[in-house]
Design a protein around this nucleic acid. Sequence first.
DNA 1: TCTTCCGCTTGATATTTGTCAAGCTCGGGA
DNA 2: TCCCGAGCTTGACAAATATCAAGCGGAAGA
Lengths: 232, 232
Amino acid sequence: MIDSPFGAVRHLDLFARMSDESFLRLTRAAYLQSFPAQLQLIAEGDPADFLHVLVSGRVELFSTWNGRETSMATVHPVSTFILAATVRDAPYLMSARTVEKSRLILIPSQDVREIFEQDIGFAKAIVNELARCYRATIRTSKNLKLRNSQERLANYLLRQLGKSGNRTRFELLAEKRRVASYLGMTPENLSRAFNALKAHGVEVDGSHVTIVDHDKLVAFACPHALLDDYAN
Amino acid sequence: MIDSPFGAVRHLDLFARMSDESFLRLTRAAYLQSFPAQLQLIAEGDPADFLHVLVSGRVELFSTWNGRETSMATVHPVSTFILAATVRDAPYLMSARTVEKSRLILIPSQDVREIFEQDIGFAKAIVNELARCYRATIRTSKNLKLRNSQERLANYLLRQLGKSGNRTRFELLAEKRRVASYLGMTPENLSRAFNALKAHGVEVDGSHVTIVDHDKLVAFACPHALLDDYAN
DNA sequence: TCTTCCGCTTGATATTTGTCAAGCTCGGGA
DNA sequence: TCCCGAGCTTGACAAATATCAAGCGGAAGA
């Protein structure tokens, strides 16, 4: 048990400030599991039996209705997902599938709820994480309602550039069709939006994006902390 | 202090299961205030100094970007709003204005955060409320991305009918232009969507809506628990 | 190295949604 | 009672976005 596979997630905001004892109890019935690419992990509507932590690989959250499908988020390691369904003991609102080979830690939801009541550090972390997710989703809604597709893409690129830590170039972390769906448009429309952004300082080659004129792109995109600063 | 104006909110999910002592401490520095119609209560980006509880009247949450504005929600009494910004001590993501004359209870955010750490009943309620809001917002995003404007309106009407408790008729609880903005369309487009829904069993006269053929509307709207059942 | 296939791109076209302008309606105030 | 005006509706048109079809190209496998 010492040096367990769960050590990798101990530093996550969600677990960092809970007692060792609580962490041990939380992970006692948890297990680490590997999944191949393109495997559906979760079907929306299923009961939320486990809190999921992505340790390596990549997972897509998506939703369907009436034969249509939309990508809601791409999860990168190391982070948790579907915390809200877990704490409410409610059905998942989104489906999840691996995009590539992935390893996940599955923690019984029951344990999460129990330890939440006993460990104030964990409780605070859960509240913070939920509030953060809520605010991220509000931002997504604002993006969808206040911006057209070119503006959504332009600001998405600026955010990704910021995340990459680079000054001008970065790699798209998801396939373009996934990016398109995430941004609420078709792949064809994304392709055209990229073309349109050439006039605003963006160059694309495959998944390789170069912001050749940052000021110009900013002038077009008008990024705003209340829509684009997902960290806060 | 006995029979204080805060008794009206004690039964809310958020406050119902906290100790009397905690509730007293929470409301010690709180105050009840009346506001006229059309007054801006909150500007997005401001620090979240108070948790707001609407006691009577009506409040609209909205957001702006680049000269555009969209309605995010209409708050009806008795309920809280902007809990997430309060617990994170972060700036508001949405602005708020009264739609009609309203009374609100303002609770210092600092007190909310302090008592959260000391009262497990309150902490549980906050987590539940945050998770509920998060899930409601996910549903809103799914609505925007998976449905066109007629489908959004059709399902909105079915939800409002359910809330009203009636079998066929109900009143729109917000002005049509607000409904339009909430649903992510223009007032003109809403007007046309209402016309289109005549063919699916909907009749409108001002703010008075009659579902003359419920089965027909359901057949068109295809409501789904994971998109439309906001309570859960 | 060649082949195949999947995803991306492009063009043509259709549908959806927004914009602008005008007229209507209904309720409140003089 | 009449008048006024905000909000709603309608029509004509424009812009944004989706759909369909075809072709391209690069990566993985034979």
